[in-house]
Design a binder for these strands. Sequence first.
DNA 1: AATATTCCCGTTTTT
DNA 2: CGGGAATATT
Length: 723
Amino acid sequence: MTAGTQATVARLLEDLTGPQREAVQHTDGPLLILAGPGSGKTRVVTRRAAHLACTVATPEQVLAVAFTNKAAREMQQRIDHLGVGRGMTACTFHAFCARLLRLYQARAGLPPGFTIIDQDDRRKLLRKAVEGCELSLANFPPASVEPAISKAKNELLSAERFADRDLDWQDRTVARIYLCYEKLLRAMAALDFDDLLMRAAVLLRDDEQVRAELEDRFRYVLVDEYQDTNAAQYTVGRLLTRQRRNLCATGDPDQSIYGWRGANLENILTFERDYPEARVVRLEQNYRSTRRILAAADSLIAGNLRRKAKTLWTENVEGPAVRIVEVETGEDEADGLARGIAERIREGTGADRIAVFYRTNALSRAVEEALMREGIRYQVARGVEFYNRKEIRDILAYLRVLVNPADEIALLRVINTPPRGIGPTTVQRLVDLATAERRSLLELIGDGEAVRTLGRSAGRVTAFCEVLHGLRPALEMPAPQALQFVLSQSGLYALYVAEPSGEEAPRANLDELISAASVFQRDRPHASVLDWLEYAALVSDVDSVRTDAGMVTLMTLHAAKGLEFDAVFIIGVEEGLLPFRRNDEDGFDEEEERRLCFVGMTRARRWLTLSRARYRVIRGVTERTVRSPFLNELTTAGVEWTEQPARESSTRQPAAGGRLPADIAEWTIGTVVRHPRHGMGQVLALERVARHTHVRVRFEDGATRAWALEFAELQRVDFDELD
DNA sequence: AATATTCCCGTTTTT
DNA sequence: CGGGAATATT
């Protein structure tokens, strides 16, 4: 070891605690790092990667796999920052598998230029598959078949093998749909997200040579967020490290929040059984949160049974109380939140150090409005929404057709976008003809003779074909130029940008897409349009969240994993919302919901507020809510409950001797009420009489009384006030 | 064929 | 409430 290397190694081990240092210095053999929130895991992982790269391996031999693009990018940046380890691979599982499959495309039995389709396209295809099986879409909604097929793929069950098993009628039907769906995928040379993992896993499993090559290339493999791996990912990790067994898994069972996507908590819980010789390092000291926040989070997660017991501790200060705020309505909640944030900012916390988390994206709206009213700048992490915009999908579809002529979904999308007079009838005739002659649509469109049979529309189809042909040069261009070129030559520019009466948004979105492509191309100068498409298929909007932009960040609890903020507000902590419950749902997992809440809470460094509204507008209807059981589980002393008064509102009249509802929606049949003289009762009916609403109540004494709503001396009694 | 309208659906989280 | 698909209209 040279003196320079020695100095570097010393620097990598600087300011680490005992367990951290142990993990960083571990080189050969399996390693499990059980890392609690805020325990410096990323630091350990990146230092370890760098340490490997300057002691026992070259950077090229180290592979770090993360779960999200955001995590992968952060890892890459921090490794780069350490100055050693440039040339290391850090990417998501899906990206890694996609790259693998491109590299060994022929050996994997895949067509060149295969398309990666997203959930939307997958739904469309699934729909087609259901129809192809002559089943009713009502009985087999694609959205309900999807999880079954996804699960099968996660378990490396091909359609054939799936169909081979002993199945009940329901599953046999799913098997038929699965087979048909696979046929459609093959026909359009496409893979869905699950295929990427499955095909890569199968390739590694069945192709000795490929595996040997990869094992030789990647000698040290690091899998972050191991608790979120599904069976296919688990297999990839295992197969990649079969000879050397240099698999380092890091994670925290208490932060497993992707069970709904097939993640198997068992993978991390049984790591020690899979790798009996594994070294296990526990990182339990928290450097992030105050004692009170940590204690509250710990008291919550203690309610879970399926976990590895762990003792979180910190030397940090006790800090301000964790606040639980209960308010009347979702609007009150948002208002109070905005005021709370404004106060934080006034007291000196930077806006970019503040975040609002919620269970579902739908909750962001009220918050956005309130923040706008307060004049607070914010950014919303919107998942895949950006890539679902019509204009974005349109332009990507053009590129897809160019790259993969078999991509029929993309072709059908662009054939009449912008409108060029090729209507459903013509399209149907083309599709039928293609099916009958067993030719691809694109081929057919380029066949003058076949097109001529279309009669009047023939000219338009030919014109479209020429447009496509004219777009071909885009394939040779850098991504941003290719996008520009397609935009102008396809007619999309005229449709979305030049259109004087058009909206602003499409233009801005297209601009954003092009600048994203520029950034991509700048970082990867040799990347092709195909690479860009692959990248675009595997990213989400969450990946572009900046934490240095002077803005408050709004995001889902899922997107919050791996981040930290000085002040965190979690809203909508209500039964059914957090924990989230669907009426019929079988897959409900309360422990996972609890972990989700735990993840959110442990993002906070100093201030943590959880709030809940008694009434919330859900799908346009005001509904009563019930306090989340999770709030009741925060039993530590450092938690402070607050009742926030309803905001002043012109619609809310002061009640005579009681609290009057803001509107009738607050009073539903069955609402429990208290009357100053008659005692407790329950609302029997609400009826409109002339310009008044009458409320009819049955009291404990058995009597039924009725008043006009504005004169009733009734006070609503909330569930949680009853004991 | 394109646009306007209605209606009906479902309704989480992300690669 | 809001998006998408089916239906009506121009």
